[in-house]
Design a protein around this nucleic acid. Structure first.
Lengths: 237, 237
DNA sequence: ACAAAAGTGTTGATAATACACCCATGT
DNA sequence: ACATGGGTGTATTATCAACACTTTTGT
């Protein structure tokens, strides 16, 4: 049943044990109204016309993280600030070409910096995460798992900043949480909590050209956060 | 750079994209004194004499979870009650045989039921997780990530029961948390919290043959837990 | 002066923590 | 009767949740 244990009895690897491995990347961005995912239209049967996640076979000389960044770079000209591995999908018949095991990642990007060239990449589209359905392959399942994982991580780790511009207001931040998690937060309580975490740098700047009282702008204090994290940092929203 | 996108331009998969994929399983058990991991001694260079995790190449016709259960079944004659995928390790040169991408799992077992036959499996050993070091391959790293993930999950999900016998006392449960998480808990507060979760069934039984007041025995209420989980259940220790 | 979003404190309820003694059994 | 671990309640503190009005800017 176990012919040769890969870890203890090291011999050659039979070709029948070699399979294709891909990464599928749930690239998400936030545009003040909703959380969106970047999808691509398939153009070959059996999934012609359907949307799918951006995925790619892993090359022999790269790690999975590198493959994910390569896909992002290729399609959008930029890499992601934040990547998280979510889950491996390994059903035997999940891909029509034969066995392809895929590792799902989600990545967070600043959506405004990810404008793509409509002529070359006209089959790319940002779609509201609440309207995603009927994707190619098993991508509905992969997408839902990644979305769920993002929501989970957003509550436990200060990663929301990767979806916002470098300078943002407290109301923008609160809005992000409300939109992504689908809940309403009390403004005063939210500010008290954020404040107590000491993760923001007050830029002493305000919004420009808004038809109301301009908001103060902040940025995320990555340095202070990594210090705190080393000392065991707890976060919860 | 991206010759043919696996998801949109479906053609054949080139052999150069096929690699070996394995699972490595951090099998953990608890024996009232410490948390232990099941390791196996390697008998081939370059790792001869070192211990490694139990791992195995994934077969063409099975999922990763199935591969993990197959390994467990083979070495111990039983499957695991609880499995969790942790992380994929994909450094290009992590395995001397060539490229092997591995997916790490941890699994929880009732250690008393996993006694193995010392003649056939004499190179298997339970080792205290705090004494693990110098494993073969990149297994130190894999092990530490899995241990950390277990500790995390133990605080968030009621999975500790998988490490205990079906009938257990509240002190045993508390001890498990203390040993695995490395902290001290207040007995009265611990009991109040566990009680408020309504996850235990009072068996109206007591310990036998102990030289002190016998403890009441409980079992974990899987059914009630899965109901609660569907309604969004929060847990924290 | 008005519209529109920014900003700000207090109170009551709930949950977390700290702490010390009596109880049941076997020897 | 003694040794061993099992079992129980209360008071204090910290955290969370609910709630409404004033401020600043552009038009």
């Amino acid at each position: 049943m176990i012919a040769e244990n890969i870890n203890t009895h090291i011999s050659a690897i039979d070709d029948k044990h070699k399979v294709a491995i891909s990464v599928d990347s749930v690239i998400m961005g936030y545009d003040e109204e909703s959380l969106k995912v970047l999808l691509i239209e398939c153009n070959t049967p059996p999934y012609e016309g359907k949307y799918s996640l951006l995925g790619e076979l892993v090359n022999p000389n790269e790690t999975l993280d590198e493959a994910v960044q390569r896909v992002l770079q290729y399609w959008t000209g930029r890499e992601s600030l934040y990547l998280e591995e979510v889950k491996t999908f390994s059903s035997v018949n999940r891909h029509p070409l034969g066995r392809v095991i895929t590792v799902a990642y989600y990545s967070l990007v600043e959506i405004k910096k990810f404008t793509f060239d409509e002529t070359h990449q006209k089959n790319l589209k940002w779609i509201d995460v609440n309207k995603v359905k009927d994707l190619a392959f098993d991508h509905d399942m992969i997408f839902q798992e990644c979305l769920e994982k993002l929501r989970q991580s957003l509550r436990e780790k200060p990663i929301g900043f990767n979806l916002l511009p470098k300078k943002f207001s407290l109301n923008q931040l609160q809005n992000l949480y409300e939109v992504v998690l689908g809940l309403e937060l009390d403004k005063r309580n939210f500010r008290r909590k954020i404040n107590s975490l000491n993760l923001l740098i007050d830029l002493n700047e305000t919004q420009q050209d808004v038809a109301h009282r301009p908001a103060k702008l902040f940025s995320f204090d990555y340095e202070h956060y990594s210090k705190q994290r080393r000392q065991g940092f707890k976060f919860e929203i």
